[in-house]
Design a protein around this nucleic acid. Structure first.
Length: 420
RNA sequence: GUGACCGUAGCUCAGGUGGUCAGAGCGCCGGGCUGUGGCCCCGGAGAUCGUGGGUUCGAGUCCCACCGGUCACCCCA
């Protein structure tokens, strides 16, 4: 038997209502905040991701689904959505529109990692981006919106962690300082951190190893190195959050896995997710648009992991609506009439189920029962003959004759019964 | 990419030390009730026992490899 690819999951009919509901909650709030949807390809040239996410990141180094197509072009399945949106933003000259430009997209992302709880190789994100706004108020509004969306979807006990990564001006000196700090105690650090010391010093800070963390208690903190502008931005960002009565935790160890972030970064965590407890994360990336060849444009964004959101959401009890009427025809002629009848009723907005398999009444009633239909219209040869159908209420277990002149009349009588 | 545990019908699981071990419950379809449901009784369909090798007279049952699942690490949504 051919099975799905590792880490790629089917979303079955029992699950899709929850997905649709969650997405509907998100869309509702996104439009309230003034965002418009953009849909971009899930396949892009490899170079786009390499240049935006960063050559030395784990994502680019070992997690991308990359292949060469028939024209010898290197393509990759998007591991995140920002790069493609920025590409589209530049390609279509969206920067010429009134600022800020607020966009979102919903869809699958692909990362070749070992699957575990809350982590698939194909997973789904709601991705949000704001272009052309540099004030910390925008950062704060985005964070607040992320919380609004998650909570509208039934997520509770969310924890917001924030940090500032500064800009290239202040991060570079800090990086150097940190590198020296790490190298000075290299022998006492774990293997990973020894490697990080040279390649990506910032990453060492959020190492889970206790020994390393003990060492890092005295490590230099980026926030102490922030330049005047970055510090002001960070302080203002926090002031906005406080004013909005959003509680947050400053996490100076918070680092992101993508190179393009500047200044504000944040993660929203939820209990009950296991080791992967981040439901949403994002930050500011003021340098990315120009790095990809566009005009200098400040930008902020974040992404919500839909699978993780689903894991922590309390969903409404009833997401699916059962049929209002089940038509049970007995005999071939009745079955033919049933199709016309069902179609007319559906055209009038009624949720109708019908059966054409020629099963016995008992089986049809059982079926109607399992579908949680409210009523059953029994239509046999006798009823057609007498022009008198039977309408059965499955809950009260009662039924009454429903005389009719013709099919149109029958439709009307059923409508009256169901609607009043 | 690393590690631990796991892999028998659609689902949940039984199957001492290798020799009628291919089963049960639920679900599905049907019959009992020749046109009246959720209960009950009966029957039926449905399994290359994850895949491929090996050991053996004989392997779900032992060995190896691979694939997949779960969780953790790395990293991330």
């Amino acid at each position: 038997m051919i099975k799905s690819v590792r880490g790629f999951k089917d979303i079955l009919p029992e699950e899709t209502p929850a997905w649709s509901w969650l997405e509907a909650q998100a869309r509702e709030i996104l439009v309230r905040y003034g965002f418009r949807e953009i849909r971009v390809p899930i396949l892009e040239k490899t170079e786009l991701f390499a240049r935006s996410i960063g050559e030395a990141t784990d994502i680019v180094e070992k997690e991308m689904y990359t292949f060469v197509d028939r024209n010898q072009e290197r393509l990759t399945l998007r591991p995140e959505a920002t790069a493609g949106i920025v590409r589209a933003f530049i390609e279509h000259g969206l920067h010429n529109r009134p600022k800020p430009i607020k966009l979102f997209t919903i869809g699958p992302m692909f990362r070749h990692e070992r699957p575990q709880k809350g982590r698939l190789r194909q997973f789904h994100q709601i991705d949000v981006e704001v272009f052309g706004a540099q004030s910390p108020g925008t950062d704060a509004e985005l964070v607040v919106m992320a919380l609004d969306i998650l909570e509208a979807g039934g997520a509770r006990n969310l924890r917001l962690e924030i940090n500032s990564l500064g800009c290239p001006d202040c991060r570079v000196p800090f990086r150097e300082e940190l590198r020296e700090f790490l190298l000075a105690r290299k022998e006492r650090l774990c293997e990973d951190c020894q490697r990080r010391a040279e390649r990506n010093p910032l990453r060492a800070l959020d190492c889970k190893n206790e020994v390393c963390q003990a060492e890092y208690r005295e490590a230099p903190e980026l926030t102490n190195f922030l330049c005047e502008d970055c510090r002001a931005h960070y302080e203002a960002f926090k002031a906005y959050l406080s004013e909005a009565e959003v509680s947050y935790q400053v996490n100076p160890r918070l680092v992101r896995g993508l190179d393009y972030y500047t200044r504000t970064i944040f993660e929203i965590k939820a209990p009950g997710l296991g080791a992967q407890d981040t439901v949403a994360a994002g930050g500011r990336y003021d340098g990315l648009v120009s790095a990809l060849g566009g005009p200098d444009t400040p930008a902020v964004g974040f992404a919500i992991g839909i699978e993780r959101w689903l894991l922590v959401s309390e969903l409404p009890a009833e997401l699916e609506s059962p049929p209002e009427l089940f038509i049970a025809p007995l005999g071939e002629e009745a079955a033919r009439v049933t199709l016309r009848l069902a179609r007319s009723l559906r055209a009038r907005g009624i949720r109708v189920e019908a059966d054409y398999e020629g099963r016995r009444l008992k089986a049809l009633l059982r079926q109607a029962d399992r579908l949680s239909a409210r009523k059953v219209l029994i239509l046999g040869e006798d009823e057609l003959q007498k022009k008198e159908a039977l309408l059965k209420d499955l809950e009260t277990r009662t039924q009454e004759p429903l005389p009719f002149e013709n099919l149109t009349d029958l439709v009307n009588r059923i409508l009256i019964d169901l609607r009043f």
